[in-house]
Computed example of a mutant assay.
Amino acid sequence: MNDIQYPLKGACQCGSITYQLTEPPLKVIACHCRQCQKLSTSAFSITALVKTESLVIEGELKFWERLADSGNVNGAAFCPNCGNRIYHFNPADPDHIKLKPSTLEDTRVIQPSSHVWVVEKQDWFEIPDGVPTHQRQS
């Protein structure tokens, strides 16, 4: 992954929201909780934890929030036109954003360093050997 050149460009499905990620993610996590399954309409959702300052966004986002099992607020930023989620955030941690990296043009950064909420994992999905797992949140 050393050949990935930053900044990386990203966008929502309709192109109304564009952004640049100026530095590599701190970590990439696959979450298997039921809420992420609903979000992704798949077996899990991928999140790239990035520094807030490393994300430069153009376009006007809409926001939605829900209370997580941890008691933290899980906010979502998305395109008001196509509904594509761009990132999640916790207002109590303003220095970090949970980018939805499938919105990047270059998706090679999507290599999960851990899997969380595997207690709710779909039975048919096999986590690769050697990747750390956590029954709930890490």
Rank of each mutant, 00 (worst) to 15 (best):
N2R: 11
Q5I: 06
P7L: 07
L8A: 14
L8I: 01
G10S: 01
Q13E: 12
G15T: 13
G15C: 09
S16H: 10
S16D: 14
T18H: 02
Y19C: 10
Q20M: 10
Q20E: 14
L21Y: 03
T22K: 15
E23Y: 06
E23I: 02
P25N: 05
P25I: 00
L26P: 07
K27I: 02
I29N: 04
A30F: 04
C31N: 05
C31T: 00
C31L: 06
C31R: 01
C31M: 06
R34G: 09
R34Q: 15
Q35H: 11
Q37I: 03
K38Y: 00
K38Q: 09
L39N: 13
S42L: 10
S42I: 06
S42D: 10
A43Y: 00
A43I: 04
F44N: 04
F44R: 04
S45Y: 03
I46Y: 05
I46H: 01
T47P: 00
T47V: 13
K51Q: 15
T52H: 09
T52F: 07
S54M: 07
L55K: 15
L55D: 02
I57P: 02
I57H: 09
G59I: 00
G59L: 00
E60M: 09
L61C: 09
F63N: 09
F63A: 08
F63T: 09
R66E: 07
D69E: 13
S70V: 07
G71T: 10
G71N: 10
N72V: 06
V73G: 04
G75F: 01
G75C: 02
A77D: 04
F78P: 03
P80Q: 06
C82A: 14
C82W: 04
G83T: 12
G83W: 04
G83K: 06
G83A: 14
R85Q: 08
I86E: 01
H88S: 14
H88K: 08
N90I: 01
P91H: 07
P91S: 10
P91E: 08
D95G: 12
D95C: 09
D95F: 06
K98R: 13
L99Y: 03
K100M: 11
P101K: 15
T103G: 04
T103D: 07
T103P: 04
T103V: 10
E105M: 14
T107H: 05
T107I: 12
R108V: 00
R108N: 05
V109S: 05
V109R: 09
I110S: 01
Q111Y: 03
Q111L: 15
Q111H: 14
P112D: 02
S114Q: 14
H115T: 04
H115P: 02
W117E: 02
V118E: 00
V118T: 15
V118P: 07
V119L: 07
V119T: 11
E120K: 14
K121M: 03
Q122S: 08
Q122N: 08
W124L: 03
E126M: 08
E126A: 11
I127N: 05
I127G: 05
P128S: 12
D129Q: 15
G130L: 09
G130I: 01
T133I: 11
T133M: 05
H134N: 09
Q135K: 13
Q135W: 09
Q135H: 07
Q135M: 12
R136T: 12
Q137S: 11
